[in-house]
């Protein structure tokens, strides 16, 4: 956990012009109770491997960097970058004071339903070789999964033959 902490300390989420800091948990622990509990249970795996020394040397860390990043990207893509959006919301952004290319791409992101992590990989930690291919792979894998959107009430009603409210 020291390697990724060190990398984060070089980035804008640690040190920036406005003096607002996002700490590890701001990005990695959800606010909502059910998601938070799930994250805490999943974190047992991290503690286990930390104790086991799975990533205890720089070489071991680099070997697993892409795999670990991929797991976090999957989580973020699946949750529509929920933890990012606790601070960064499109509704609160003033595109006119953003850099031109940032404003254009954020507009495109709204129009096409993209999520933060689609572009902003590696903002707090270093990226492994082949990261873009791996990210595209994550997106494909998630798209292939059955849709887990809101419950299709109309579909259920029509299946049961009860059209009336």
């Amino acid at each position: 956990m020291e390697t990724n902490l060190g990398e984060y300390r070089e980035t804008v989420h640690y040190n920036n012009h406005s003096g607002v800091r996002a700490i590890c948990s701001d990005c990695h622990v959800p606010h909502e109770w059910q998601y938070k509990m799930k994250a805490k249970i999943m974190a047992v795996k991290d503690v286990y491997h930390e104790v086991l020394g799975t990533i205890s040397t720089p070489e071991k860390y680099e070997e697993r960097r892409l795999e670990m990043a991929s797991a976090v990207w999957t989580k973020m893509k699946a949750s529509d970058s929920r933890e990012c959006r606790n601070c960064h919301a499109f509704e609160y952004m003033d595109f006119t004071i953003q850099e031109t290319r940032a404003a254009q791409n954020h507009q495109k992101a709204i129009d096409t339903g993209m999520t933060c992590i689609d572009c902003h990989q590696g903002i707090a930690h270093d990226l492994a070789p082949g990261y873009l291919e791996e990210y595209n792979h994550v997106v494909k894998k998630l798209a292939a999964q059955p849709h887990q959107g809101p419950i299709d009430v109309a579909g259920i009603k029509s299946f049961l033959g009860t059209q009336s409210e």
Binding site: E10, T11, V12, E62, G122, I123, D126, L127, A128, P129, Y131
Partner: peptide
Amino acid sequence: EQYQIDLRT
């Protein structure tokens, strides 16, 4: 600023 250009990426 903060673009990674190194041996890896």
